[in-house]
Lab assay of single mutants.
Amino acid sequence: MIINNLKLIREKKKISQSELAALLEVSRQTINGIEKNKYNASLQLALKIAYYLNTPLEDIFQWQ
């Protein structure tokens, strides 16, 4: 199981879903879906999320 901390980290950094989506060149709905565990981010997208949030990938998506 993967624990998804994207919403928590994004909100801590005061970045909206729309802002993050624009940086990543995806839709806001994609970010929303990832945060609600409706969609799994591809490895490429997960790495981009970590880069733009300046946060280690394993802090955003944790295996349990």
Rank of each mutant, 00 (worst) to 15 (best):
T55H: 07
N5G: 04
L8V: 15
K36T: 15
I34M: 04
W63Y: 09
L53D: 00
E35T: 03
W63S: 06
I2P: 07
N54M: 09
M1Y: 14
Y51R: 09
L20T: 00
A41E: 01
N54P: 02
E11R: 10
Q17R: 07
K36H: 13
I34Q: 00
Y39K: 11
S27V: 04
S42E: 06
E25L: 11
I15G: 02
E19N: 10
W63N: 05
I60E: 00
W63P: 05
I3T: 13
K38S: 10
K12C: 12
K38V: 13
I9K: 02
T30N: 04
S27R: 09
K14M: 11
N5I: 07
K13A: 12
Q44C: 14
I60C: 02
L43S: 06
A46I: 07
I49Y: 00
L24Q: 00
V26I: 10
L43D: 04
I9C: 08
Y51D: 07
I34E: 01
I60S: 01
A50F: 04
I34F: 03
A22Y: 09
L24A: 09
L20W: 03
Q62T: 10
E35C: 04
G33Q: 15
L20Q: 00
A46H: 03
L8F: 11
Q64Y: 10
L24K: 00
L24S: 04
Q64F: 07
K14N: 14
S16V: 04
R28D: 10
K38H: 12
N54K: 12
S16T: 13
A46V: 06
Y51T: 08
N40V: 15
R10M: 06
N54T: 08
E58I: 09
N5Y: 07
R10F: 06
L53F: 07
K48G: 06
K48V: 03
L20G: 00
K48C: 08
L24N: 00
T30E: 08
L57W: 05
K36S: 14
Y39F: 14
A50Y: 05
L8K: 15
I31S: 01
Y52R: 04
I31L: 12
K13N: 11
F61S: 01
T30M: 12
K13P: 01
N5S: 05
S27G: 06
A21N: 02
I2C: 15
I15E: 00
I2T: 10
G33S: 14
K48H: 04
I15Y: 07
K48Y: 04
N32G: 08
M1P: 10
Q64M: 09
T30D: 04
K12S: 15
L57R: 02
S18M: 12
L45W: 03
N32Y: 10
L23F: 14
L20I: 03
A22N: 12
Y52I: 15
I3G: 09
Y51C: 11
L6D: 02
Q62I: 11
I49F: 04
D59C: 13
L24I: 09
D59T: 08
K7V: 06
R10A: 03
L53T: 02
I3A: 10
A46Q: 10
L8E: 15
L43F: 14
L24W: 01
I2Y: 12
N4Y: 04
L43C: 15
E58M: 10
Q62M: 10
I3M: 13
W63F: 10
R28I: 15
E19S: 10
E11H: 07
S27F: 03
L23M: 14
Y39M: 13
L53V: 03
S16L: 05
I31Q: 00
L20C: 05
F61Y: 04
L23Q: 10
N54F: 05
Q17M: 08
G33R: 15
N40Q: 14
Q64S: 14
L20V: 02
L6G: 02
E35I: 04
L24E: 00
I60L: 13
E25N: 15
S27H: 06
T55L: 05
Y39R: 13
K36R: 13
K12R: 13
W63L: 07
L53G: 00
E58F: 10
K7I: 05
Y51I: 07
L57T: 04
Q17C: 03
K38D: 08
A22T: 12
K14T: 04
R28C: 12
L43A: 08
S27I: 03
S27K: 08
V26N: 01
G33H: 12
L45T: 04
A50L: 03
A50H: 02
K13I: 07
I60P: 00
E25K: 15
L57Q: 02
K14C: 12
V26E: 03
K38M: 13
Y52H: 12
I3V: 14
Q64C: 11
E58D: 12
E25P: 05
V26Q: 02
I9P: 01
L57S: 03
A22D: 12
I49S: 00
I31F: 03
K7Y: 04
L24Y: 01
I34P: 01
L8H: 13
F61W: 08
I49C: 04
W63K: 06
K7S: 08
E25Y: 08
N37W: 08
N4E: 02
E35H: 03
Q64L: 06
I31H: 00
A46K: 12
A41T: 12
E35D: 02
T55I: 06
Q64K: 13
N5C: 13
K7L: 07
K36C: 11
N5V: 05
I34S: 01
K48M: 09
Q64H: 12
T55F: 04
K48A: 08
E35W: 03
I49A: 04
E19A: 14
A21H: 01
L6V: 06
K36D: 13
S18H: 10
P56G: 05
M1A: 09
K13T: 06
K38L: 13
P56K: 09
T55R: 04
L45K: 00
L43W: 13
L53K: 01
R10Q: 02
E25S: 14
Q44D: 13
T55G: 03
N4A: 03
K36Q: 15
L23C: 11
K13L: 13
I31C: 03
I34G: 00
D59M: 11
N32R: 15
S42Y: 05
I15Q: 03
E11S: 08
L57V: 13
R28W: 15
N5F: 09
L24G: 01
T30H: 11
Q64R: 11
R10C: 12
K48Q: 08
E58Y: 13
T55K: 03
M1N: 08
L47Y: 10
L45N: 01
K13R: 12
L57H: 03
I9V: 11
V26M: 04
N4V: 06
F61A: 01
M1K: 10
K38Y: 13
V26H: 02
I34L: 09
K14H: 13
N4W: 06
E19Y: 10
N5H: 08
T55Q: 05
P56W: 06
W63H: 05
K7H: 07
L23E: 07
M1I: 12
Y52M: 10
K38P: 05
